[in-house]
Amino acid sequence: MKGKSNTAPHTGDHLDAEALYRAHAEFVARFLLRLGAHGQDVPDLVQEVFLVAHRRGGFTVGRAKPTTWLAEISFRVFSDRRKKSRRKLEDADSETVTVAPSHASSPSERAEKRQALERVQSALDALTPEKRTVFILYELEGESCDAIATGLGIPVGTVYSRLHSARRDFTRAHERLADETPSASPAPGAVAGARA
């Protein structure tokens, strides 16, 4: 039985949950992982995100971008799961979803990139979820501040404020981590301040 929603499935200005999934499932999975979701939880979380999208009637062009709209749903779903996760650890699955370097020509390069990913993730983990969300969408996903504001339903000034603070916290955390792993020592005094 194929899931046909009661709304227009995929028209010029509307995307149903299935169309959203086809186009943005990887984005949602990546976003959830960067938010801090465990890899084994990601498949279920992704499902939940798109079920919520379905119940909201799908995405209609004009309110936000699909990605930032889904990011807002993902944040909610992730936050809710986090509250329960301490009691659900026994449900952990070994089929883990991860982010992996997409361009690595040699094993050593792959290892370096993995270290870089770990440092970035650890620095992200130092941010509050709200700041992390804005940082991920802006710095890693390349969304504009306006799109983030619309998708999350917050003023663009709040996005700038969170981004400013997130950059500061991220940079500090990354400095500490880079000091611990010599392969990525930052140049002293060369750390940028936030300009948001």
Binding site: V46, V99, P101, A116, V120, A187
Partner: peptide
Amino acid sequence: VASSLRDDLASAVQVEVAGLDLAGGL
């Protein structure tokens, strides 16, 4: 910005999701 930070961010941008069963999820 420190090159090490930019390098790490560049690595974090160029990633792919591994292990997600897209067809099964759909």
